[in-house]
Design a protein around this nucleic acid. Structure first.
Lengths: 152, 152
DNA sequence: TTTGAAATGTTATAACATAACAATTTCATG
DNA sequence: CATGAAATTGTTATGTTATAACATTTCAAA
């Protein structure tokens, strides 16, 4: 578990390696994402951004920053809920072949886990069978009920 | 490969078994879906519905029909593209544990295939590890390039 | 220090989806 | 058949998500 500033530093390093510019604004949005308990909609983030950083910010500001962060692998977009969250593996050396998001429909929380090798190879088999070529790591979203909510 | 009317009949049977009412309107929307080459947005379907069936139809008409069809397992919603398509397995006895959609970013087409058992059990393993309970068959969407587009 | 590409600001609008309530239809049951 | 509760459909309005388009500014490399 590393602190916020360490994470931001690490994120900056990653951008440099990948030829991306980590500007103040983008860092602010990433910081916002990192401070959240759960995934947020773009407009929720916009509201917080306006409150904390820039009162007159407009949607494109947030969407551009989010697009950038997603491109750089520092954030993820959950397409099944139209939400965004910081990547849970900014500080670790992650060598994923894909990511699995477990979305709890009860509490709205998300668990992000690397796809296990076994699952990856099974999926690859299935893709190969169809002659389908994947360009980016697949992000798989599965809905259900998380462990905490299952207890209650 | 069964014809449109056969498929609609089969769909009707399924609804009855599941306690759903297959109305004229819903059948019309399903027929629209079945006549498509690829997945369509709700508003594309609305435009076609207005053209073919009811000139003054409004968005709720389409969304309600789509919601119903998805509930009954006769159609799917692709959350990564906000599109809808007819289930490719209305006429077969399908005993899926989940479905994998291969979305071609080049031609916009979709390949729908049942999740192979191996992949299912790998994913289940991973879910079990997190204590996560799935309520519905997972629908997994993977983007990439389909076989035809890979050739070109 | 120019200069051009990238980033940001700003206005407007497109695209996706649902709330809320009225009217109608359906269909089990009296 | 009558009829009334539940489901479906009609209709208006609006909420939510996302991007187009163009102006301005920033910033690093030549």
């Amino acid at each position: 578990m590393s602190g916020l500033s360490q994470t931001l530093t690490r994120a900056e390093q990653r951008c440099q390696q990948q030829g991306g510019r980590m500007t103040t604004q983008r860092k602010q949005v990433l910081a916002l994402l990192l401070s959240q308990a759960g995934p947020q909609s773009a407009y929720q983030l916009l509201a917080q951004f306006k409150h904390q950083y820039q009162a007159n910010a407009q949607p494109p500001t947030i969407y551009r920053a989010l697009d950038f962060l997603v491109q750089q692998g520092l954030a993820h977009r959950l397409s099944s809920t139209n939400q965004y969250l910081a990547c849970g593996h900014i500080t670790c050396q992650h060598d994923h072949q894909g990511t699995l998001f477990l979305l709890c429909d009860t509490c709205g929380g998300v668990q992000e886990t690397p796809l296990l090798k076994g699952a990856v190879s099974q999926l690859q088999q299935q893709l190969g069978r169809e002659g389908f070529q994947v360009q980016h790591e697949p992000l798989l979203e599965i809905h259900g009920r998380c462990a905490s909510c299952a207890v209650a």
